[in-house]
Each structure stands twice: as C-alpha cells, then as structure tokens.
Design a protein around this nucleic acid. Structure first.
Lengths: 331, 331
DNA sequence: CTGTTAGCGCCTTCAC
DNA sequence: GTGAAGGCGCTAACAG
C-alpha cells in the first residue's frame, strides 16, 4: 500500500519538516527554490499521494463539489454534467454526483448525505426544492448554483435560460406556419421547467385564441416509445390536431416514427415540435423544429461560477445563456 | 451554519460523552435503550449531521466509491453509471465520478486524484490501463471492479460479457442471411472492447472466407452523423458491400438514415448491424439487428460486488452477465 | 525562509 | 454500559 505514506514520511526522507513538505505540495507559501526542488524529488521517488481527507478536515472544506441531477440517462443532464466535470477538473475539483430521479424528497436526502462530506459547493440541476432543502442550502455556507431555469429568485446563483420565453417564440413560429389545432405530449410532475414550458405554450396559444389538447401527461419525461404511443393516442382522441408540441426531442422523434409508419406526411398532415435541440433530431431526414438549448455551456458556466465564487471573484447571480429557435422541416 | 455542530455539541446537550453519541450515530457498540433514545432525540432536535470527512480520516477509509468512465454522454456508460449509483445509494455510498474521455493517460491522472480521497473502492468502466495505473490499482488495497469486457485476467474483479463471442454470433447470423460482402464502421483507439469486437468480426469472417472492409476508422465512438457519413464514404469506395457492421447502434441508425435518404432498401440493398441494443434502435420502423448488452445490470452488479467485498462476503472474481442477439429487420 | 504548536471531528483502545 | 485519552494526516497561526 504505497499510499500509506504521509507527510511525515516525506519530511523525514527529505530532512525537512512536515509543513515544508505541505507547502511544496500545495505550491503555497514561501519555500526556497532549492528545498522545493529537493522535496519535489523525494515526493516523486516515494510516490507520495497526499490525503485530501485530512487536508479537507483541517481546512473544514473540501475540493469536492456536490452535483444533484434528476437523471443520468437523459442526454440533457448528461451534457450538463459533462460541462461541470470538465470545468471542475481543470481546477482540481471533483464532482460528487447524486441522482434525484425527479423527486424532491430524494433530492433532499441526497443533499443531506452529500453535505456531510463538506463539499466546497453545491450545484442543483433543478429549481424545485422542498422547503427544508431550501433552508439547508441557504444555510450551507457554500456557493449554490441552480441550473436550467431562470425564473424565480435563485437561492444563491442561477445559470440557464427562460423556458417561458422559449416556449412563446416556439408557439409564434408554429402558428405563423398556419397550423390551427394543437396538441401537447409531455409530463406532469414537479419539474418546474417542464411545467413552465407547458404553461407558457398553453397561455400563448390562448392569447391567440387557440386551445391546447393534452390528454394524458406522463409521470416521467417521455422517451421515444412514449412519444410514439402518445401521438397515436392523442390523434385518436383528437384527429383534428395538426401540430404537436413535445416536451423533448426524443418524444418528438417518436412522433416522427409514428407518422412514418402511418404514412402521415410531415408537416402537411402533422407538424412536430421538439424541445432541446439534440443532435439526433437534426440528423433526421427532416430536421426537427425545436428549441436549441446550451446544456454543455450551462454546466461549464455553473462550474466556473462555483470556482469564481470560491476565490471571491465577483460573479453575476444570474447568467442567461439563451436559447435558439431551430427552424427545421417538421413545422 | 447549522452543520457546524459536532459530536461534542450533541454530547453536551445530551449530557453524555462524545463517544456515546458516536455509538448512537453509527448504531454500533452497546448503549442502553434509554440513552440511545434520548441521544437520538437530541440529534433530531439539533439537526446534527456527522462530518464524514473526520469519520473517514479516523477510519482511514471513506464510503465514497471512485468511478472512472470513458464518457458520460454515451448512453451505454450513462446506464452503467445509473446502475452503480442506484445500488450504492442503497448502502449509503456515494460515487465520485471521473471521466477519462477514452484516454488512458487521463484515466491515470484521474485515478491518482481520486485515490487521494481514500475511496472505499474503485470501479473502472474500461479494461485498458497504463502499466502505472495497473500497479496503482494492484496496490490500492481496496476492491477494484473492471467493467464490460471479460477477456483478460482482472486486476481484482470483473463484470461484463465476452465481446468476442458476441461478435462471432453476430457474424454467423448475418452470413446465414445470405450477405456476402462486408464493411465495418467503427473506431480505432485504445478501447479494448471496441478493438476486440472488430478483431472478432474480422477473424470470424475470415474463417468463412470473407473479407472485412474498414476504410477509415474514427478516433472516437462514431455518433449518428459519423455513421451516416461513414456509410456514404464506405459505399462510394466499395459499392459491392451489402452488409455493414457498426461499432454501435447510434452509428447504425445514422446508416439507416443514409439509406432512407438515398432510397436504399434495407436489408435488400444493404444490411445494417448495430451493437448495444439501445431502446432507440428498436423503436425504428425497421428494428435494428444488434447485440443487446445489459449495461444497467453491469453497473448494479459491479456496485453490489463492491459492497460485498467491503463486508468480506465472498464474491466471484468474474461475473458474466451475457448478451443477447436481437434479430431485428435490418439484416 | 523554515519550524513548532495546536487543532479539524471522529473513532479506536482501553479503562472504569 | 459508559467514558478518557490518543491518534488519523493535514494545515493555520504564530515563532524564530
């Protein structure tokens, strides 16, 4: 077990004190070039790896960042996490990942569990929390970044974009193309972003005098088969619908498959509207009309804000990374 | 900062000693029912959260598990990670995730960085390591689980399946359907699984007297656009090819899109063979012929083996979760 | 520029 | 059944 080496061992081998080795390891404090080189050499030779548990304990803070995301398999969050991970790695920080499965109660438990590791910061890829979670975060004494959705006052910092605005633009685009009867396939849980998207679409359509038909919402973000089945169900209940908004691109692709199988032509018979701008939707023969969001950037900026905040560099409380209407061929 | 409470504070409030509180918290050692209840109550009232840094330091071991995966965005590894995360969570362990980007050098750096947190175990979703990485793992003194590929002797434990066998079965199936000229679209880096898949396909075809045409291999696992472009390139260079093996389902779907656009009928003009059995490939109008692998189970079993190993429960060194030939409609 | 001292918060060991 | 020391490995604060 070579890693059972401690500062003391290195110090003894190098003929200096522990604290000198510590300074060399951290690259902080003043050490003469000579001793620094010497100690560095000894560290190399011995293969010493500092114990960060002890370091964190003595500083009462670690270089781990707690990250809570609703799902790992959802590509959107996978990309957010990738951005976070890459950016943290540059500064020598590690993410500790917790998955909430879109459940605020689990989020709360996970958060408590992670806080007992005294992370340097917390990143939450969600804006809805239990009251207790909010309170814990407010008192955690570490930077907190909430992701994706900018509406509402952040606990500490927020990075994302305005789902409501994106939905409005999407609606206007679809209506401008002449569609007149609208359906929605999505989900209905606590996810604030999804909810505010649905509401924004419904409201905007209402302003223009249109209805939005959403027969049964799912309990989870719909995947491709759910999008396919949902489309069939919706069309059987409301055959007049000539445009469907989907909660995400994957579900919309499911809708496209339904059309393909049923011989419905897109967008003449039915218009399909996605949400997220995944690469996959754009690779289809008919590129999907959707809202492109910047997941990777959101992750990176979140991490960067964490790091800034930890070094007391001024950070804006709210970072709007925007979105982009992708005018595909399905509307 | 409510979490600045320590054992000492709880002990004072409860009128007992630190160690008694510690025993109650851990549920270990003998404490009378009365004091236990009392202390539990005080912990509740104060909202005490034990500091695991200190706990881990004094035990010289934590309940964090280091997980190194090549990519977060690749659905295969996302699912592996999901399995790991869910299973660890049940036992109160947290994964600390490092992403290697399919690079053994980065893997080595990440590993060293993570070991300085003295994780309870290490899970590597890859079987190729630098010599130094191997040595570090052998001496780490903690359980090590390597994933996906069963060939080769594991450092400690391995969970996965035999890529070579899967490829052989795949080849036999495709040949049995009457195809006679074969192409391959994949990648060529250090990934042992990908390499052994390619080799196994090539070898098996050779045994049957066939060639395998693989013009240019990518540096990364091909995605949908790469699969699409690769298909075009390959067919322009070798128009006689009537069946293509893809390194993964996503690339194969890209191939399907190419056929759709070019009016090639599948499998008459061209057969498409995927690898992984992603849900997506099965949702297509023509379900993809592929090998289904059990990513989620691999993750779960890996985590379970870690936990067993930590409690000195006997664990088999090698766990073969198998695979499944999916006879779709594209061959 | 380098070293000494005193913890960080918990757990192990050994008394009582 | 409970408690008092001592130590896990590191770093902050102060000396020299």
């Amino acid at each position: 077990m070579p890693n059972r080496l401690t500062l003391k061992d290195v110090a003894a081998a190098a003929g200096v004190s522990q604290i000198t080795v510590s300074r060399v390891v951290r690259g902080e404090g003043v050490v003469s070039a000579r001793t620094r080189d010497h100690v560095t050499q000894v560290i190399q030779d011995l293969g010493f790896v500092p114990n960060k548990l002890a370091g964190a304990l003595s500083q009462t803070r670690s270089n781990q960042v707690a990250v809570l995301i609703p799902s790992l398999v959802n590509n959107v969050f996978a990309q957010v996490l990738r951005g976070i991970t890459e950016e943290l790695a540059k500064a020598g920080y590690n993410p500790v990942v917790g998955v909430t499965n879109y459940d605020e109660q689990i989020e709360e438990e996970q958060l408590i569990s992670m806080l007992s590791w005294r992370p340097a910061a917390v990143i939450m890829a969600n804006r809805v929390h239990t009251p207790r979670t909010r309170k814990i975060l407010e008192n955690a004494g570490v930077p907190v970044v909430e992701l994706m959705q900018l509406q509402r006052e952040p606990i500490d910092m927020a990075v994302g974009f305005d789902h409501g605005a994106a939905s409005t633009i999407l609606v206007d685009h679809v209506v401008s193309k002449g569609h007149r009867s609208f359906g929605y396939i999505g989900w209905s849980n606590h996810d604030f972003s999804a909810a505010s998207r649905y509401t924004a679409i419904k409201d905007r359509l209402a302003e223009k005098g249109f209805d939005l038909i959403a027969p049964d919402l799912f309990e989870m973000p719909p995947d491709m088969p759910m999008g396919k089945d949902g489309t069939r169900t919706l069309l059987s209940q409301a055959p007049e619908v000539d445009a469907i908004f989907y909660a995400n691109d994957i579900a919309a692709i499911g809708g496209a498959l339904h059309c393909l199988e049923q011989g419905l032509s897109v967008p003449t018979d039915l218009a399909l509207v996605g949400y997220s701008g995944l690469q996959m939707g754009q690779a289809l023969p008919q590129p999907l009309t959707t809202i492109r969001t910047f997941r990777y950037d959101i992750g990176r900026i979140a991490a960067r804000n964490v790091l800034k905040s930890l070094t007391n560099t001024p950070v804006s409380k709210i970072t709007d990374v925007g979105f982009e209407l992708v005018e595909g061929a399905t509307v």
